[in-house]
Design a protein around this nucleic acid. Structure first.
Lengths: 225, 225
DNA sequence: CAAGATATCTGTCCAGTGGTTAAATCCACT
DNA sequence: AGTGGATTTAACCACTGGACAGATATCTTG
């Protein structure tokens, strides 16, 4: 009832526009992504997109929110599959590379509405799905940030084309290689010496997830006034 | 001879436009930066900017090139001042934060002409200034990439407003905190066990710089076709 | 099933943008 | 003085994001 020959009502235009936006970001880059181009790609007028999302930033806000949902799902799936902290980090890089359309929007707050309730809720939902424990202390948080920053750095440098070619063209392999240099021991914590590497499942709940939930408390990006 | 009351010829329009572009990126963000806005800021018509840089991407190419020059200068100065590998990493983060107008352009190759000769030369000059040694092997390179990715991740997460507030608002302090978790030992290298931390000057030439020079060999960013 | 009411989408208009081109202005040199 | 080249402006084009009125479809409610 909605696919005869271009009916007046699309039926599922909202998700179709998000898909079109992601696809456009993926092959044109975020800078060259236009509201009208996305609408054209979906086969509707640009005003239809405005109706659903308010403005261009609103569309990209929806892209970012959906991205957080999918990132959370990917990390959760990897957790259940491998129970490996290292592999969760690798999954983060894999997500960035395989879904760069989402990823490249998610970490450019100047492109969307960083205070949008739906976006915040998607982040919070992702976090609450992952996090089930106590608040981390400062040392635990620093450890988690180190892991996150390392994987985020690998992902962004790879996406920017800044990885030295001799390292090969497999971003996941690079992530594993680099992760060997991360020391996830929490200083002063009992058993710290046997947690030197990035691969103990036990550190998962106490190190990575606390960081992820803190992420959701959003520092209301100090970027633009 | 060039500052009476708005002479027809500016005299130093090229650098003035670069400054205006950096300032605009700094307080509007890269997405909202327009060629016309930059020209207005410099007090000239947009066509004058086009004359000097060809197009908007050309202007941002010049911004990126100048950014690489300044980054190299900052890292070199820190090296001579402290001889500390850790502090060079901190200086990288400091540069990103204090000169975000440059930094945010440098790592967005979709904004400029990544193959521009002047840009490549600036990167190469920065690298040759820093690098004076042999080609690194794969292990050394992985170690350097780990350090670079970690600091790059800290810098970008901070710029994006994604650092958890409890960590404080000093990005350099966060960089030092996080760096404690980086293990710069090169596996299988003699003396690896005593290089566990991120602060030995001796590792400087053999770890950080090789990465930086490899960076200049430019993988011709696989990003956009 | 008729008749609003509502949701969804289009067409049109506006100011602003990036880019091109011709013309104007200035400067250096003879 | 005046010619030639460098620099800048002005005018134009196609496009963008956004606003709005109106068209079309769907949903209610009688």
């Amino acid at each position: 009832m909605a696919s005869d020959s271009r009916p007046y009502h699309h039926g599922h235009l909202r998700p179709a526009l998000i898909d079109a936006a992601v696809a456009t970001v993926e092959d044109q880059g975020p800078a060259a992504t236009s509201l009208r181009g996305v609408a054209r790609r979906a086969g509707v007028s640009h005003a239809a997109a405005t109706y659903h999302f308010g403005d261009k930033a609103g569309l990209l806000t929806a892209v970012a929110a959906e991205g957080y949902r999918r990132l959370a799902e990917a990390l959760r799936a990897e957790d259940q599959a491998s129970h490996s902290y290292l592999e969760i980090g690798v999954a983060y890089v894999r997500f960035a590379v395989n879904h760069r359309g989402y990823f490249e929007v998610m970490y450019r707050p100047e492109l969307f509405h960083p205070q949008d309730p739906a976006l915040l809720e998607a982040r919070a939902a992702a976090a609450s799905e992952l996090y089930r424990g106590d608040q981390p202390d400062a040392d635990q948080m620093a450890t988690g940030i180190a892991a996150w920053a390392l994987m985020h750095g690998v992902a962004t440098l790879w996406l920017n084309g800044n990885m030295p070619p001799p390292l090969g063209d497999d971003p996941e392999a690079i992530a594993r290689l680099v992760a060997k240099h991360l020391d996830v021991a929490v200083p002063g914590e009992p058993g710290a010496d046997r947690l030197r590497t990035f691969s103990r499942a036990e550190t998962l709940k106490s190190v990575a997830y606390p960081v992820f939930i803190q992420m959701t408390s959003l520092p209301s990006s100090p970027i633009r006034p």
